[in-house]
């Protein structure tokens, strides 16, 4: 029965069904399948949800973030990148990734592909490279966003992933520390900057040759 619950979770998410529904159904199958009464299952669900309210505390930050965004924060970040005067594409891509890591560490959710990569980073990188190379460098701009986003968000002690892992491990009975977790998250983040820097430099070198 436990296997069915895991299978359902994977299948549902792979089929792109609505995530919240898949997660709840998987919990129902696991709980009812191992012989919990519906009432006991509701109690576990309710208690777990209430105990983990701190995972959704970031909602408190939304009004302030939304207000500064409405008055042009993203536009300002864009202008700031533009004014830096980075010229070499590799430099530009890596600087963007570092900036993105910084935003993640500050707990900012940017959704950079439509907001920063398409209107800003991709045109800037293309301006410095010959036409046949554009496809490659545009893809690299999207990759820089993903690299910075994925590994930067683990650097905030109130980031969604860090808190979720913290809560899951606490539930399993481990004494966890948010700040120590963030400390270890620096390693993959730096490694990613290193590997990405190497990749971007190689792309630029291919272009020179």
């Amino acid at each position: 029965m436990q296997g069915w619950a895991v299978f359902l979770l994977i299948l549902g998410l792979a089929l792109r069904l609505r995530t919240t529904v898949v997660v709840l159904l998987s919990a129902l199958v696991a709980g009812l399948g191992c012989g919990l009464s519906p009432l006991a299952l509701l109690e576990i669900l309710g208690k777990a949800f209430l105990d983990n309210r701190n995972l959704t505390l970031f909602l408190l930050t939304l009004p302030a973030v939304a207000t500064v965004e409405r008055y042009g924060l993203k536009e300002w970040i864009g202008e700031w990148i533009h004014r830096r005067g980075w010229r070499r594409p590799a430099q530009l891509l890596l600087s963007y990734q570092i900036l993105r890591v910084g935003c993640g560490a500050l707990g900012l959710r940017l959704n950079g592909h439509p907001n920063l990569v398409r209107p800003l980073l991709a045109p800037m990188v293309c301006a410095e490279t010959p036409e046949p190379e554009h496809e490659k460098f545009k893809a690299a701009a999207a990759a820089a966003e993903n690299y910075g986003n994925f590994y930067g968000q683990n650097l905030s002690p109130v980031g969604g992933g860090v808190l979720m892992a913290f809560a899951t491990m606490k539930g399993l009975g481990y004494p966890m520390s948010l700040w120590r977790m963030v400390g270890y998250a620096i390693f993959p983040c730096l490694l990613c900057l290193l590997l990405a820097g190497w990749q971007f430099a190689r792309l630029s070198r291919d272009q020179d040759a």
Partner: peptide, 18 residues
């Protein structure tokens, strides 16, 4: 809500012996 739901799922999974 997803992180909170997943943490709850984790607890149910633990009870169910996943």
């Amino acid at each position: 809500l997803l992180p909170q739901l997943l943490a709850s799922l984790g607890l149910v999974f633990a009870q169910a012996g996943v």
